[in-house]
Design a protein around this nucleic acid. Structure first.
Length: 576
RNA sequence: GCGAUGGUAGUGUAGUGGUAUCACGUGACCUUGCCAAGGUCACAACCCGGGUUCGAAUCCCGGCCGUCGCACCA
């Protein structure tokens, strides 16, 4: 068995995670977290919240997992849903059908059609397999389903979709959120929740799920905001940039300020979050020596992103993506601004109000309406644009305006331009978005893989999870050394007291004392308290630290305060 | 989705056309004076459906799930 097999076995046996619905044969891509996993997940989410929401002064919201189809039409996800895969019947390699049609027949628009309609197209335009050069006439077509669809309401035809990312919930509610931020940039909005993707092939346990948990932060910034000044630190980020990937394949270790100065990372906000996140990963047990930030190659950038870095961890020789840091520009807000009736812009006041000359065209609508029909508004706004660049255009008797490749002639006498002085106090802008998007399930898996160890204590093998005490499912185990002489009564009493202090406590009196330590080592419990006979002489108990298996004696009265300090990090065991 | 391969107590395994091996585990009791000790007893499994057969967990077919490779991953 490999290391990772041992870990998966442990996860099943001790209640971290396991395939869901197993009683009914299971369903690929859906996992359940057991008692240990659910506690760990909750602790990790809280740690993220403390760092990225509270620590950064951002807002957290919670939006529905189901939204109506226009939302995803706007976001571009619905078009992804319509993609067709075409498989060559000879060599069995699959391609995106629309991409193939575009490249082999230089069609500009990707045909957004069903399987049936595409088959008709196929009889008109023949395609050849790029790999084996055979014709694709009798190849199989299949829809590439990505989003889970549902119908909303009884007998309703209103289609809805389960969100493929939590981000859209933030973008859709942006008009209210910007009001809530009182119109000031930058501001950040976060959401922790489940997202759904109907993956073709879920694999490798928690690393590709069909229902998964994301912790996403959308930082809304002014388009000209290049990011904060970054305090020089000694933190070296392991960067794997596009140029490194193309050349020697080595990771560079540079500080955030060096990365900016050397133009490895263009946007300072991205560098800022890469550093903040590296510190967080370290605090929750990711091994930073098996970690890198990899920049997306130009051809793998998402449709919305101008730059993207993935945090990746090494597990059994594979690099697993655990977070994406994307510069989404104004893609999402501009799409929703266009598709919805709401206003997704923000009004940003200028430092100083400016006097500006504004031209009013005062068009003769008796001429424009009958002559240009529906094109009128577009033509007028184009003239407006031209006039703002060149105020002399009305001097000639005719104006030429080009709309969609057609040139229209306009009689100048039908316009009666006037100019007036207006005071401009600000402008409407679409903010840009910096998005760190964390995959919580993959992070959980990575932490378990990176903290799992097998070592020897007193000549006996043991397995342990060296989880940071801030996220351990159980914080302290409490045991009686023996189940007699009232040791168990005292131990139960201590356990109950510690619980009232809000600590996660496990009481165990089964088996030998050594076995109980091993049980807790295996689920990452950082401390164990054992009550022995010396308690009756001086009211002290032993406190054992997990990784070292070392013990000290502690006064029962100070136990709960001491453990709380160990948990929140204000004390360290080895200083005691 | 395609190809290969597998599915036996909670976990890991042995094995077979006639209901199943072993270990760990879990529980109870005894024991136990600090790192998976010992004893007794108990708990607990052939992925699902169909076919062949007197009889299927075993053979055949289909499905589901796992692993690996290919493809896909907005």
């Amino acid at each position: 068995m490999t290391h990772i097999d041992v870990l998966n076995e442990l996860a099943k046996r001790r209640g971290f995670f396991f395939s869901a619905n197993d009683s009914y044969g299971g369903l690929a891509g859906f996992y359940a977290y057991g008692p240990m996993g659910a506690a760990l997940k909750s602790n990790i989410e809280n740690s993220w919240r403390t760092k990225f929401v509270i620590g950064e002064g951002h807002f957290e919201i919670s939006t529905p997992t189901i939204s109506p189809s226009p939302v995803f039409k706007a976001s571009g996800h619905l078009d992804g849903f319509d993609d067709l895969l075409i498989s060559c019947s000879t060599c069995e390699i699959s391609y995106r059908a629309d991409h193939l049609l575009e490249s082999q027949h230089t069609l500009l628009e990707s045909p957004d059609v069903s399987v049936k309609e595409f088959k008709k197209l196929l009889s008109k335009y023949s395609l050849t397999c790029p790999s084996c050069k055979n014709t694709l006439d009798d190849s199989t077509l299949q829809e590439f389903n990505l989003m889970f669809a549902t119908k909303v309401g009884p007998g309703s035809q209103t289609p809805g979709y389960l969100r493929p990312e939590t981000a859209q919930g933030i973008f859709v509610e942006f008009p209210r959120l910007s009001d809530y931020a009182r119109g000031k940039l930058p501001f950040g909005v976060a959401q922790i929740g489940t997202s759904y993707r109907n993956e073709i092939s879920p694999r490798k346990g928690l690393t590709r799920l069909r229902e998964f948990t994301q912790a996403e932060l959308e930082l809304f910034i002014h388009p000209t905001d290049l990011g904060p000044e970054i305090n020089p630190t000694t933190t070296k980020l392991p960067l794997y940039s596009v140029s490194q990937q193309e050349s020697n394949g080595n990771i560079e270790f540079v500080t955030p300020t060096e990365a900016i100065d050397q133009n490895i990372i263009e946007n300072r906000w991205l560098a800022y979050y890469l550093e903040l996140s590296a510190n967080w990963y370290d605090s929750i047990g990711i091994d930073l020596t098996r970690f890198r930030y990899r920049q997306h190659m130009p051809n793998e950038l998402a449709h919305y992103a101008s730059d993207c870095w993935d945090a990746e961890v090494e597990i059994d020789g594979d690099w697993i993506e655990i977070t994406g840091f994307a510069h989404r520009g104004n893609y999402d807000l501009s799409k929703h601004n266009t598709h919805s009736s709401a206003d997704f812009t923000m009004f940003i006041p200028l430092d100083e109000p400016q006097e500006k000359l504004q031209t009013n065209l005062n068009p003769d609508m008796g001429y424009f309406g009958p002559t240009f029909g529906k094109l009128t508004p577009e033509i007028l706004s184009k003239i407006d644009e031209m006039a703002s660049e060149d105020s002399t255009i009305f001097d000639s008797p005719e104006l030429s305006v080009e709309i969609d490749g057609t040139t229209h002639s306009i009689l100048s006498e039908c316009l009666h331009p006037t100019t007036e002085k207006v005071t401009v106090t600000g402008e409407h802008i679409l903010p840009h978005v910096i998005e760190p998007s964390f995959g919580i399930d993959r992070i959980i898996y990575s932490i378990l893989a990176h903290t799992f160890h097998e070592d020897i204590v007193d000549g006996e093998a043991r397995s342990l999870l060296s989880l940071p005490s801030s996220i351990s499912p159980i914080f302290v185990g409490v045991f009686p050394l023996l189940t007699r002489d009232d040791l168990d009564v005292v131990a139960q009493d201590i356990a109950s007291n510690l619980r009232t202090s809000g600590l996660s406590v496990l009481y165990d009196e089964s088996g030998s004392i050594g076995k109980r330590y091993r049980r807790q080592d295996e689920v990452g419990t950082p401390f164990c308290v054992t009550v022995d006979h010396q308690y009756f002489e001086d009211q002290t108990v032993t406190l054992r630290e997990r990784n070292s298996a070392l013990q000290i004696r502690v006064d029962v009265d100070s136990l709960s305060a001491l453990l709380e300090n160990l948990r929140n990090g204000s004390s360290a065991f080895f200083d005691l």
